[in-house]
Amino acid sequence: MSSSSWLLLSLVAVTAAQSTIEEQAKTFLDKFNHEAEDLFYQSSLASWNYNTNITEENVQNMNNAGDKWSAFLKEQSTLAQMYPLQEIQNLTVKLQLQALQQNGSSVLSEDKSKRLNTILNTMSTIYSTGKVCNPDNPQECLLLEPGLNEIMANSLDYNERLWAWESWRSEVGKQLRPLYEEYVVLKNEMARANHYEDYGDYWRGDYEVNGVDGYDYSRGQLIEDVEHTFEEIKPLYEHLHAYVRAKLMNAYPSYISPIGCLPAHLLGDMWGRFWTNLYSLTVPFGQKPNIDVTDAMVDQAWDAQRIFKEAEKFFVSVGLPNMTQGFWENSMLTDPGNVQKAVCHPTAWDLGKGDFRILMCTKVTMDDFLTAHHEMGHIQYDMAYAAQPFLLRNGANEGFHEAVGEIMSLSAATPKHLKSIGLLSPDFQEDNETEINFLLKQALTIVGTLPFTYMLEKWRWMVFKGEIPKDQWMKKWWEMKREIVGVVEPVPHDETYCDPASLFHVSNDYSF
């Protein structure tokens, strides 16, 4: 037999072997998808029940369902290793196997995995149920939502704001400190077992692309791009910072340095994350009609249902689908009040099986009107990829998912749209002054938050990498806050605090 014939037969044999492996992989994935749908849905439903009704029974049910899901994933991840990716030609099959071969938290021992889940659930519970009591009246206690958040959004009393700011960190942050220390250790162990340098590197892996249509993007490039983007917006932020400082000097004349940092408790919310609520103090042309339409919403008797129905109309107007019937029947759109304790931070849920929901303790404000559009943007994205195989139902990356939500809320905030839905009067006219007011309001929300987020994530990356010793977490946190964000702590904090974890995203294990 000629050498060319042998070569042809060899190629046929290799192709047949690849085809056999690929067919086996497809069969394996079909079985996995069928089983995963049910187990993931049960786990998601148990998590939803806990988040909307925080009880010991629900946390136990959530843990049990989560353990079943984790055990299943660990088993299936091991089985998926049997299919070598280099022998799979079908890109859809390869991407699913690649996702499943990534072990995630299931790489930890059973004891450590359970401990990590306990830590995460405990931190979430402390954050959502933590109360601050009035020292003069111990029976008068406030949760973060709505009590403390209400103070931080609306109060102009310097000392009341300081009390709310400090009490939240003292009551909740200190409880979270030992848990967060354990969390860092276990998450790093999980990341390294998955061949990442640390948990920050694991997060950045979400943005990594290897040879898809000839395109590559590394975790290191992400760090470079983040640094570059921050340097680009820094001059604009510094101008905004100086303008806000001048306006705060008028409101709090004896508390603000004309050349120094801004006190952290005066920036519009509990964390200084969004400066939106400073608009009334900083509006350049106050004689113009108010483009913050909160009062109009209240006057027109809007409620949470109306807010979300208007958001749905907005999405339908640009060619996107209505929310499902189940969305309206199962979402929690208002604070249950004293009936039950719930996690009030707005979140969009894709539970699986076409079950999409939003959890939000909606208030009738323009801020929540825009947040509703943001969260519904997440749901629209979830619905758009719902037909994909189970392992591919995700956003391109976390940042893109947020961008989908944010672009919709930005569009909904324009005076033209607000006028079209009757929240600005029919005779409202846009001119240079109203446009400047609008742009300032947008800058308070968007530009003001960028250094906050950059600095927070930089601190977390450094902590996970071990570049900040545990006994210097708070020292470095406030050094970076002053240097990068231009914000100063109103009272000193020692290493018993854990100020970063006083933010939902940190205590609940979300990256930005």
Rank of each mutant, 00 (worst) to 15 (best):
L91W: 02
L45E: 13
W48L: 10
Q60V: 05
K74E: 09
V93Q: 13
A25V: 00
L73Y: 10
M82D: 15
L45M: 01
Y50C: 08
A46E: 11
L29G: 13
Q98R: 06
N51Q: 09
Q89T: 04
T92K: 02
H34K: 15
N63K: 07
Q96I: 10
N64V: 06
N33H: 01
F72Y: 00
E75A: 00
T92H: 00
D67I: 06
E22S: 07
L45D: 14
K26I: 00
L91Q: 04
A71T: 08
W48Y: 05
N33E: 02
K26P: 13
T27A: 00
K31G: 15
W69P: 12
N64R: 01
S19V: 01
K31E: 15
M82H: 07
T27W: 00
E22F: 02
V59P: 14
A71N: 02
A46C: 08
E35G: 08
W69L: 01
K31T: 15
A25N: 14
I54F: 11
Q24M: 14
K26D: 00
Q98N: 03
Q42F: 14
F40M: 01
N49Q: 00
D38F: 14
Q96M: 10
Y41C: 14
E57L: 03
Q89N: 01
Q98S: 03
E37L: 11
F28V: 15
Q60P: 11
Y83E: 15
H34M: 12
N63F: 06
F72S: 11
L91E: 06
N63E: 11
E23A: 05
K74M: 04
T27P: 03
E22M: 07
Q98H: 05
E56C: 04
Q42I: 00
L45F: 10
E57D: 09
P84M: 11
L29W: 14
Q96H: 11
K31S: 15
D38M: 15
S19W: 01
H34A: 00
Y83Q: 15
Y83T: 14
Q102D: 01
S19F: 02
F40R: 00
E35A: 04
F72A: 11
Q89M: 05
N63T: 12
L45V: 11
E35D: 01
W48H: 06
Q98E: 02
K68I: 12
M62Y: 10
M62P: 13
N51C: 07
F72M: 08
S19T: 04
K68Q: 10
F40L: 06
Y83V: 01
N90Q: 00
D30L: 07
Q98W: 02
T20Q: 10
N49P: 11
D30Y: 12
F40Y: 09
N51G: 10
D30I: 00
N61M: 02
L73P: 13
V59L: 06
N33I: 13
A65Q: 03
K74I: 04
W48D: 08
E35I: 06
D38G: 14
Q60G: 10
L91N: 00
E37A: 13
D67Y: 02
T92W: 00
Q98P: 13
E35T: 14
K31R: 14
E37K: 15
Q98L: 06
Q76V: 00
H34Y: 14
T20F: 12
Q42Y: 14
P84A: 10
P84K: 11
N61T: 05
A25W: 14
T92V: 00
Q60R: 07
D38H: 14
F28T: 15
Q24G: 15
D30V: 00
N61K: 06
M82L: 03
V93A: 13
W48S: 09
K26R: 00
A71K: 01
N51S: 12
F28R: 15
K26W: 04
K31C: 15
E56S: 03
T27D: 00
F28P: 11
F72L: 09
Q89C: 02
K74T: 08
Y83M: 13
K74P: 14
N49H: 02
N90W: 00
E35S: 15
E57W: 10
K26V: 01
N49S: 01
Q89E: 01
I54Q: 10
Q24K: 15
Y83P: 14
A65G: 09
F28S: 15
N64F: 07
D67F: 03
I21H: 12
T27H: 00
A71G: 03
V59D: 12
F28E: 15
L29K: 11
A25R: 15
E23Q: 01
A65M: 02
T27N: 05
N63L: 06
E23K: 05
Y41G: 15
Y41L: 13
M62W: 12
T27V: 10
F72D: 13
T27L: 00
Q89P: 00
D67P: 12
E37H: 12
L73K: 06
A46R: 13
D30R: 14
L95Q: 03
W48K: 02
F28M: 13
S19L: 10
E37M: 12
L91Y: 03
K31A: 15
L91V: 03
A71V: 05
K31Y: 01
E57H: 02
Y41A: 15
A65C: 05
E75F: 00
Y83L: 02
L73I: 07
T20G: 10
N33K: 14
V59I: 10
N49G: 00
E57M: 04
W48N: 02
E75T: 00
S19R: 07
Y41W: 15
Q60H: 08
E37Y: 13
L73W: 06
L29D: 09
A25E: 14
W69I: 00
A71Q: 03
D30Q: 12
V59M: 04
M62V: 11
E75Q: 00
V59G: 08
V59E: 07
N49E: 00
D67V: 04
L45S: 13
Y50I: 10
T92G: 00
N61A: 06
V93L: 07
E35R: 14
L91K: 01
Q89W: 09
N49M: 02
E22T: 01
E23S: 01
L73T: 09
Y50D: 13
W48A: 11
P84H: 12
Q102Y: 09
K26A: 01
L39Y: 03
L73F: 09
Y83R: 14
E75G: 00
Q96W: 12
T92A: 00
F40G: 10
E56L: 04
L73S: 09
L95H: 03
P84N: 10
N49C: 00
V93K: 13
F72E: 13
L39E: 02
F40V: 10
Q96A: 12
L95G: 04
K74W: 06
A46W: 12
